[in-house]
Design a binder for these strands. Structure first.
Length: 877
DNA sequence: TACTTCACG
DNA sequence: ACGTACGTGAAGTAT
């Protein structure tokens, strides 16, 4: 077999990887994206090329000979960011562990070492491949030496390949002449001065003609553009020196020999351990054979009723146990972790029925101190655990409170973060569409997943509890989140009644107008196209029709409302598009979308998610019942199809400006507090203060502007954002903001204080100690940091409001149940509760709502609510 | 799968 | 000179 040498430009590839991948750390907080990217690239080429030899070149840290040549060298190359710098020793450690030789030598750059090594390789008859992100290396290309430049594009990595002929084709000069081209044009980032006035084009032209700087100089009279001729004459010395700088050395005294680069076994134990610490699961998979200390569970599948009873009896006197459940169609399995690595898998079959298992598990909640389970809410219906059961320990909720920024809280994440245990994820195990269960019961993967989930659910109880206690969140967890979980379950279970036919009629009534609009739009545009495609729409409007106000976004023209509204009065097509958009939204998302979720009981049972938002709010999906139209009348009409059951009436209560009230409380601003204690119209009051006019002279426009400012404050406002919202100049917006803060000075102080806290502590928290980490505040990116500041201002306000309504929601729900009332809580929309009230209980329920909502938190100002009744959601709002 | 748009608080 | 209001979810198109 022919020998093949793969050479990697270490710094260059590491650099590319760093900027090509999103920020990423392992659980110890070590940045790892560049190392992962490097290894992925390396493995990609190992697989593609199957080289027999491999070496990686690195620059040494100290500025090298080449850079020192210039007195004004002060680090024209910006120092690398810390996040990258800390990864340099790491990749070296990994390579060392893999027995891959590294070339690093004082006084020589990686380029020189690569060049020298490629020459040696070629002279020995090796095929040579050089991997780099740097085009300068193209001068090394020959018939046998190929330069491969990987580029991370959106659609994966693409590689540009260059043998000598490819360089010729693309740059019209030979690889050797490439040096002269670079010497002529110079390179600021490499501190190569070049010759003034000669850029890429002239340089290429000259070298194409004369093949070298020296030859061009000898034929100086023939050098064409006059400017080039004169400058070449005047700066010839500098050109020659530049050439020396641009030329990669091919004769370094390299310390390693070719045979040292022979690939042995890179899958070493040391490398494995290192990669494990880095948490590179995808790379670990390349190591075959079993990890000697891979985590193993001992699984016993229970088919015998007597044995099952034995096991449940044994579990009953433990402090912690872990449960996992899996259901598919009518089949049911439970996983149980009682001690050590022992897992019991209990399929419901034969004498062991699902009812038996659920009953046994429910009993464990009574006898065991803590029963750990993930996503407990999904099983509350079957388990029949009472709200006040102290042994309920929901792993997902605990992990969410500790870090609400994660997108998932799966068992492998929890194991990594709280048990320092790397185990295969559900996604990895079920990778190639492998099922959890087959004809003969659980598959191998299914057993593993159920086992690990039960194991993690038991063993993480202690570390999670400890962490919650450390962070002062035990009360929040016990008294707010766990009870909220029960309330959400109840709401999901109850659902909301929808008139199926009325919903269909609503949708049908839209169709006519939509078609009409569509034809009118085609007419105006003079062509037919897909109006739903922002891309096509943008081209039709701003190119074909040449409307003004185009451009925006990287992918094309923006066609969003605020862009279109600006030109709404100039072109008749614009209002048509806006109306078309509105109607198709109502049709597809609401009329058709909601219809798909109406169940047999004529009710929609949406899901409420408790571990999604960064601030502590809940979210609603399948369908989203928290964004049913209300602002525009046509959309609002859809609420007429949400109806109470016979004998019931809707009761809707929402907090009046809860976030501003929370702000008043948290900031302790006297003026704001006073205004609320007097129950004044806060927006009018703000307008009066900001514009310096008496309350009774505030115009509706002034009130509207003041309202926008009040909202802006909550969002961590910026002059830009406010100006966009109010369609005023930034100067005016800034003026409003200044005046606002002059009026409510404590608000300003409070917001500044929160930003400061965020910066020093790395997080901010609500009145009830819910915390939101803000990693963005440490970002070196200006925009990111600004975002972090706004988050620091907004999260405690939005989060405290979320805490308060959770408390109210729980109390209302519990009270109605305790009193055995027929009335029931069915929806929560952030600051609003919707109750399907039994007609005869109406007054009592109203009282409960008022009391519980107004007294959910003890603030310096009263919490007010608006309350309405109606025979549809439309009427009740 | 990413992006854009738009519905809500 | 950056590039933005805070928090969500769903639908549709383009990749």
């Amino acid at each position: 077999m022919e020998e093949k040498l793969l050479l990697i430009d270490g710094n260059s590839i590491l650099n590319r990887a760093f900027y090509g991948l999103p920020e990423m750390t392992n659980s110890q907080g070590l940045h790892t994206n560049a190392v992962l990217g490097f290894l992925n690239i390396m493995f990609k080429f190992l697989e593609e090329e199957h080289p027999t030899h491999l070496a990686v070149a690195f620059d040494l840290k100290a500025p090298t000979f080449r850079h020192k040549m210039f007195a004004d060298y002060k680090g024209t190359r910006k120092g690398m960011p810390d996040e990258l710098a800390e990864q340099v020793p790491v990749i070296k450690e990994v390579l060392k562990a893999m027995d891959i030789p590294m070339m690093m030598q004082e006084g020589y750059e990686a380029d020189d070492l690569l060049g020298t090594m490629s020459v040696i390789g070629e002279s020995q008859g090796y095929e040579v491949k050089i991997i780099s992100g740097d085009r300068d290396l193209l001068q090394l290309a020959t018939d046998k030496v190929q330069i491969r430049i990987p580029k991370t594009k959106m659609s994966g990595t693409i590689v540009e390949d260059y043998y000598a002929a490819d360089v010729m084709e693309k740059y019209q000069v030979t690889p050797k002449e490439f040096i002269d081209v670079k010497a002529l044009m110079g390179d600021a980032s490499d501190n190569i001065p070049g010759i003034p006035g000669i850029g890429e084009k002239t340089a290429t032209k000259l070298i194409k003609e004369f093949h070298s700087i020296e030859n061009a100089y000898e034929h100086i009279e023939e050098v064409k553009p006059n400017r080039a001729k004169n400058n070449l004459q005047e700066y010839y010395e500098q050109g020659v020196m530049s050439k020396e700088l641009a030329a990669i050395k091919l004769d370094c005294p390299v310390e390693i020999k070719l045979e040292d680069a022979k690939i042995q076994n890179i899958y070493t134990q040391e490398a494995y351990q290192l990669l494990k610490k880095l948490e590179f699961k995808s790379i670990l998979k390349r190591f075959d054979g079993d990890d000697p200390d891979e985590f193993q569970l001992e699984t016993e599948t229970i088919h015998d009723l007597i044995r099952a009873e034995e096991i449940f009896a044994q579990a009953a006197d433990r402090e912690q146990i872990g449960i996992s459940i899996y259901e598919e169609n009518d089949r049911f399995w439970a996983g149980l972790s009682v001690e050590g690595q022992q897992i019991y898998l209990l399929p419901a079959e034969g004498f062991i029925t699902k009812e038996f298992l659920l009953d046994q598990i429910s009993r464990l909640y009574v006898s065991v101190e803590s029963v750990g389970m993930m996503e407990t809410k999904e099983y509350l219906g079957e388990l029949k655990i009472k709200e006040e059961t102290p042994s309920v320990f929901d792993i997902s909720l605990a992990a969410y409170l500790i870090n609400p920024l994660k997108s998932t809280y799966e068992y492998d994440d929890i194991a990594r973060d709280y048990l320092s245990l790397m185990i295969p994820s559900r996604k990895e195990l079920l990778d190639k569409k492998k099922p959890m269960a087959g004809e003969d019961g659980l598959t191998e993967e299914g057993r593993k997943i159920l086992g690990m989930e039960a194991y993690v659910s038991r063993t993480s109880i202690v570390p999670l509890s400890r962490r919650l206690a450390e962070l002062g969140m035990m009360d929040l967890y016990r008294n707010i989140e766990i009870p909220t979980m029960f309330a959400l379950y109840d709401m999901e279970e109850r659902g909301i009644h929808v008139d199926r036919q009325a919903l269909k009629d609503y949708g049908d009534q839209l169709i006519g107008r939509i078609e009409e609009l569509q034809n009118m739009i085609y007419q105006e545009a003079g062509e037919e196209f897909n109006i739903n495609s922002p891309k096509q729409l943008g081209i039709v409007l701003f190119e074909h029709m040449k409307l003004e106000g185009g451009k925006k976004t990287k992918t094309g023209y923006s066609t969003s409302v605020d862009v279109l509204e600006k030109i709404e009065h100039l072109y008749p097509i614009i209002p048509m598009i806006l109306e078309y958009r509105q109607l198709t939204k109502l049709k597809s998302t609401y009329a058709d979308g909601l219809a798909n979720f109406i169940r047999e009981d004529e009710r929609i049972h949406g899901k409420f998610n408790q571990t999604i938002t960064a601030t502590g709010r809940i979210s609603s999906t399948e369908p989203n019942l928290q964004n049913i139209p209300v602002r525009m009348d046509l959309g609002r009409q859809i609420r007429k199809v949400f109806l109470p059951e016979k004998g019931y009436i809707f009761l809707d209560a929402d907090y009046s400006q809860i976030e501003l009230r929370v702000l008043a409380h948290l900031s302790k601003d006297e003026k704001l507090i006073h205004a609320y204690q007097e129950n004044q119209d806060i927006h009018a009051r703000t307008a009066s203060e900001v514009f310096g006019i008496p309350m009774d002279q505030v115009t509706s426009a002034q009130r509207r502007d003041a309202k926008a400012v009040n909202f802006g404050i909550i969002y961590g406002l910026s002059a830009f954002g406010l100006s966009q919202d109010l369609k005023i100049t930034r100067k005016q917006a800034q003026d409003y903001i200044d005046k606002y803060f002059a009026t409510y000075p404590k608000v300003k102080e409070y917001l500044d204080r929160e930003v400061e806290k965020g910066k020093t502590d790395g997080f901010v928290e609500t009145m009830f100690h819910r915390r939101r980490p803000i990693p963005e505040l440490k970002s070196k990116n200006f925009a990111q940091r600004n975002f972090g500041e706004r988050v620091a201002m907004n999260s405690p306000i939005q989060g405290t409001a979320a805490d308060i309504i959770k408390i109210a929601m729980v109390r209302v729900n519990v009270k109605l149940k305790e009193k055995n009332m027929k009335s029931r809580l069915i929806l929560q929309i952030h600051d609003e509760l919707l109750i399907e009230a039994w007609m005869e209980e109406l007054d009592e329920v109203k009282e409960i709502l008022k009391t519980e909502m107004m007294h959910a938190a003890d603030l310096e100002i009263p919490l007010e609510i608006d309350i309405n009744t109606g025979s549809s959601w439309y009427e009740a709002k």
